[in-house]
Amino acid sequence: MNEENSEQVTNLEVPDHLLYSQDHVWVDTSSSPAVMGVTEYAEEQLGDLVFLDLPEVGTRVQAGDEVVELESSKAVEPLVTPVSGTITYVNRDASDDPGVINSDPYGEGWIMKLELEDEEPELMTAKEYGALIARLS
Rank of each mutant, 00 (worst) to 15 (best):
94 A>Y: 05
94 A>D: 03
84 S>F: 06
129 Y>M: 03
64 G>M: 07
122 E>I: 11
92 R>A: 10
75 A>Q: 08
104 D>I: 09
95 S>P: 00
15 P>D: 09
78 P>T: 02
110 W>E: 01
5 N>F: 11
98 P>Q: 00
61 V>Y: 00
51 F>I: 02
128 E>N: 09
86 T>G: 00
68 V>R: 01
42 A>M: 10
53 D>A: 10
77 E>G: 02
134 A>S: 15
4 E>S: 12
44 E>N: 14
8 Q>W: 13
67 V>F: 05
13 E>Y: 04
19 L>S: 10
72 S>M: 03
62 Q>M: 14
12 L>M: 14
64 G>V: 10
88 T>H: 06
51 F>S: 05
71 E>D: 05
84 S>V: 11
69 E>P: 06
41 Y>A: 03
81 T>D: 02
18 L>G: 00
117 E>V: 13
47 G>I: 04
67 V>S: 01
81 T>N: 05
33 P>W: 08
107 G>N: 03
24 H>K: 04
69 E>F: 01
72 S>Q: 02
52 L>E: 06
69 E>I: 14
86 T>P: 05
66 E>V: 10
136 L>Q: 15
117 E>C: 11
94 A>P: 11
118 D>A: 08
109 G>A: 08
71 E>M: 03
53 D>H: 12
85 G>H: 00
46 L>T: 07
79 L>D: 01
54 L>T: 06
7 E>A: 02
44 E>K: 15
13 E>C: 12
64 G>N: 09
118 D>N: 15
73 S>W: 02
8 Q>D: 13
114 L>Q: 00
44 E>R: 14
65 D>S: 08
74 K>F: 08
1 M>F: 08
18 L>H: 00
33 P>Y: 12
23 D>C: 03
45 Q>H: 02
100 V>W: 05
8 Q>I: 15
126 A>W: 01
136 L>T: 15
79 L>R: 05
128 E>Y: 05
133 I>C: 09
59 T>W: 04
96 D>G: 09
77 E>S: 15
44 E>V: 15
11 N>Q: 13
123 L>D: 01
119 E>T: 14
137 S>G: 15
87 I>G: 02
28 D>T: 09
54 L>H: 10
97 D>N: 14
25 V>C: 05
92 R>G: 03
30 S>L: 10
2 N>V: 07
12 L>W: 07
2 N>S: 13
115 E>C: 08
16 D>L: 11
93 D>A: 15
11 N>Y: 09
5 N>D: 14
82 P>Y: 00
90 V>K: 07
135 R>Q: 11
54 L>D: 03
130 G>S: 11
15 P>Y: 04
13 E>K: 08
125 T>P: 02
91 N>G: 11
75 A>G: 03
128 E>K: 12
65 D>P: 08
23 D>H: 13
124 M>D: 06
77 E>N: 14
119 E>N: 05
23 D>E: 13
55 P>W: 11
125 T>L: 06
132 L>Y: 11
97 D>K: 12
76 V>S: 06
119 E>S: 11
124 M>Q: 15
59 T>N: 12
98 P>S: 07
76 V>I: 12
22 Q>W: 07
65 D>F: 07
20 Y>P: 02
65 D>I: 06
3 E>A: 14
91 N>D: 08
17 H>K: 11
105 P>S: 06
95 S>K: 13
136 L>G: 06
19 L>R: 02
58 G>A: 07
